[in-house]
């Protein structure tokens, strides 16, 4: 297993996707290859996210940390009637998170399930949108889209790996705009993969992925998905590809 293969594909997408479309694995093996890469990285990314969230939530409930000091200071100036003791009692009423090992165990089945769902969802929606744009040629049906999406998500492993830098203290915050740009790059890459596998102009592939978002947004829950994708892109999560 060559750890740099997704990076090479991401750096030279036109040539790389063309080679994959011509001589790459079939839909099933391409899916399994993508699942193996994305699951490992997804677990690592999810574990780091959970760890950070659990620590932040615990300090929020306990009213600890430098942020709380400033908030209490400001509250005292604005309204002296709010007593820190009352606030603390209220916050302790918030439910505690399950222990971290329990959450991590839950991630074992949820991460591969999430990756497989994302692949299936993207394939169905992107294929439909590409068809609306007259980008799907005869004899290149669903199987081609499933292969293209699996290959794009495999290349997206490079994005997830880069996104792990977002968990680094301080550095992660500084890198947030760069990581968001990386997320956008891998989004475009998905369109390039679609177009290359289907043999249609690149713009049709990219616009199909955008049309997917527009139609999903008309379905309401799409907005949640967009917000989730943006949040993950900013935090270096599995939004790539």
């Amino acid at each position: 297993m060559d750890p740099w293969a997704p990076f090479r594909l991401a750096l030279k997408p036109l040539e790389g996707f063309k080679a994959e479309a011509g001589g790459g694995p079939a839909a099933g093996p391409a899916f399994l290859r993508m699942l193996a890469w994305r699951t490992g990285l997804g677990w690592l990314d999810g574990a780091l996210s959970l760890w950070g969230f659990a620590a932040g939530y615990a300090s929020f409930r306990a009213m600890e940390g430098p942020l709380w000091g400033r908030v209490l200071e400001s509250l005292a100036q604005v309204n002296g009637e709010i007593r820190p003791e009352d606030l603390k009692e209220m916050l302790t009423q918030l439910p505690a998170l399950p222990p971290l090992p329990v959450l991590l165990l839950w991630m074992l089945p949820l991460v591969p399930l999430g990756v497989a769902s994302a692949w299936l969802h993207n394939a169905v929606w992107d294929h439909g949108c590409l068809w609306l744009l007259r980008g799907v040629e005869r004899n290149r049906g669903w199987r081609t889209t499933f292969r293209a999406e699996a290959t794009a998500m495999w290349a997206g492993s490079a994005g997830v790996a880069i996104g792990l830098l977002g968990h680094a203290p301080v550095l992660g915050l500084l890198l947030a705009p760069v990581l968001a740009a990386v997320g956008v790059y891998f989004w475009v890459l998905r369109g390039v993969a679609l177009a290359t596998f289907h043999g249609c102009p690149v713009w049709k592939g990219v616009v199909a992925t955008l049309l997917h978002v527009v139609i999903a947004a008309c379905c309401g829950c799409g907005l949640i998905v967009v917000a989730w994708q943006l949040a993950l892109a900013m935090g270096g999560g599995p939004a790539y590809g």
Partner: peptide, 17 residues
């Protein structure tokens, strides 16, 4: 489930409301 963001933003139901 959270309320529909599309409906909250526009006052109109979304296609899947």
């Amino acid at each position: 489930l959270p309320p529909c963001l599309f409906k909250l933003a526009t006052g109109l139901p979304c296609a899947t409301c």
